[in-house]
Design a binder for these strands. Structure first.
Lengths: 357, 357
DNA sequence: CTTAATTTTGTTAACGGTAACAAAGCCGGA
DNA sequence: TCCGGCTTTGTTACCGTTAACAAAATTAAG
């Protein structure tokens, strides 16, 4: 093969493999002495090439390390295999689970996903939408139903199949699947009221950060207001929805509240766990002396000796169903416009029936 | 504006906004009575357009809802703003944190990231690499240093800046930043040996699943072998590296081991926590009756009354540094080829000094 | 007022493919 | 042998943008 000199070796490689990754359809066509179209057909797996040529072209493409350019391809064919997905954060298992539910569906449909985090910033989401649109995606997925005006307008105009997930509205940009956070909060509130709790406190994060959490808080507030209690008066906002945030917020409340609360409601299960740890540290017994309530049904609950009372949301199913909706919309089928998923209250070991005082 | 009839309104919109999202550079150019190139220049923010035209073009582009096609753009300019990132899973906070560290760096550099999960499957990673290459990315990031042969060859040939992260090797495909899992395991093993533990057990997940965990186990094994103890004889493999997996594996060991272990080593902190819960359920006191050791420095540790002894890895910093390496390589600068990050042992409350028997 | 230098604007030819259509090759039947 | 129909192969014209260069307009200098 190579004659032995470095120069010849280089030259030889130049002919057969070149800079490899840079081989284009033309190189393959030349090497196989066929037209570019034949190569294109083989690479895309469409009919109309004789078996002999087909396998010959395949072999040469492999040898040259040819990889068809999706950039050129999707420009020419005006088709896209890209799904853009925006979530606020990947630290919340919620979104990891939603994404996990989507994965298989999109893979099977041959769609490529682009995941981006917005850190709960509308402005960031807006820029992301702009960037994504310029990639001509087959579909877009946004978290929640609150977006900037520009974002909404942009998406309505763009005519790209769009799915809003996790939150719910009857008037989505295009399609929507999620839970009703307001009623999730309200239902939990009613549950607590029914148990006899009358002196609740809330620990969350700064307002305007996570609108879903805000809605749940709103629901809780309403439920307690119906029995004449104002939970809002007794709330603390930590800087992060983390274990530690829950702990710090709880410490703050327990130190400073006029009257000791009989139940602590948290933005999510992470915070609830942190808060519960703080209670135990102070030898406040849960649920004997104080109740603890989270949100989401985090899987840490599986191993806790005292399972946290929480609202269980169907994350994986939501992801999978949402992905299916989007795929079917993309393929032109008629699709459900808006799906409301149920939230179930899990009555754990951190709340109990309270005797009326 | 609109004359009042539905038809006219439609017509009006047709002229000014069209199907909006579908406006192309040509439409803007026509509307502004300038050449396509002027519009292109304005949109890209390059010099050489008079202030008057510039703002006029901007206005019209906005009105028409014009969004430049990155697909066409990157084909023509042969430049790419895409960074492909592959991680095994998003359920491990490790990877979420690494990604978080990268985010700002890439954003600031104007690079778009595409995140994909491989579920620890080499075959999946291989397909992903193939797909990514066809998008002509500016750079690629893979998790770990173990990849299929095809993947390695493909990447070496493609000439795309590639970063391997989380694990470490002196012979990366291109660049590498991570920790040495083997010595992390070994160091923790030595730490435990020094504390006096001689009867360790291990709880992880099925072999060949997570090669990094495998390496750490190897290191642990070596450290204990040096004092004549075989930890491998006393190990359990759960199906998932979760809270529950840790609990189930622990129960299995405690039920079936010939001799009760004096310390339980876990694949990560999640499993360690689950295991600790199981110990407490059995009123086995930690660390009095049994030690518990995790890996990673999960942030749940911040709130636990007993902080888990663990190896702390610099995830966020690793992500940020890795992203910087890649960016600088992309921009043609000379770059470090391989960076080894330190792992620190955190001596928590779940291990103690053991008296020699 | 010229002329040169500089800035602004426009033209042409890619970028790497695909769609749509045209041409060529192959087959059996008349 | 010739014809029509089917399959295989090739040609041409884009897809929406940018690089490179050319032309026109403007400004500065003499």
């Amino acid at each position: 093969m190579a004659s032995g000199t470095g120069w010849d070796q280089d030259r030889n490689m130049n002919e057969t493999e070149k800079k490899a990754g840079t081989a284009k359809i033309e190189d393959v066509a030349k090497e196989a002495s066929v037209s570019i179209m034949s190569v294109s057909r083989v690479m895309r797996g469409v009919e109309g090439v004789s078996a002999a040529k087909r396998s010959e072209i395949r072999r040469i493409a492999r040898r040259l390390g040819y990889s068809p350019s999706r950039v050129a391809g999707s420009l020419a064919a005006a088709n896209s295999t890209l799904i853009g997905i925006s979530v606020p954060t990947l630290f919340e298992a919620v979104f990891a689970e939603i994404l996990d539910g989507m994965r298989n569906i999109f893979n099977r449909a041959g769609l490529q996903t682009i995941v981006e985090t917005t850190d709960y910033l509308e402005s960031f989401e807006e820029k992301w939408v702009e960037r994504m649109i310029s990639w001509n995606p087959a579909g877009l997925i946004l978290s929640g139903v609150y977006h900037s005006k520009t974002t909404m307008k942009r998406l309505r105009n763009a005519g790209i199949p769009t799915l809003e997930i996790w939150d719910h509205t009857e008037t989505p940009i295009d399609m929507c699947i999620g839970v009703n956070h307001l009623s999730a909060g309200y239902d939990m509130g009613c549950h607590l009221v029914a148990l006899g709790y009358r002196n609740p406190a809330y620990v969350g994060v700064s307002l305007n950060r996570d609108p879903r959490a805000e809605d749940r808080f709103e629901g809780l507030t309403k439920a307690f207001a119906e029995v004449g209690t104002n939970i809002r008066a007794n709330s603390r906002l930590a800087t992060a929805a983390s274990f530690e945030g829950g702990m710090v917020g709880t410490a703050d409340i327990l130190n400073n509240a006029d009257e000791q609360p009989d139940v602590l409601c948290f933005l999510n299960d992470h915070m609830a766990f942190g808060g519960m740890m703080e209670c135990e540290r102070r030898t406040l017994r849960v649920p004997k002396n104080i109740g603890v309530v989270g949100f989401n049904g985090l899987n840490i609950n599986e191993v806790l000796p005292k399972q946290i009372t929480t609202s269980v949301t169907p994350r994986t199913l939501m992801g999978a169903t949402g992905a299916r909706m989007l795929v079917s919309k993309i393929s032109g089928a008629k699709t459900e416009q808006s799906i409301l998923m149920p939230v179930e209250i899990f009555a754990g070991d951190t709340t109990r029936k309270i005797e009326p005082t």
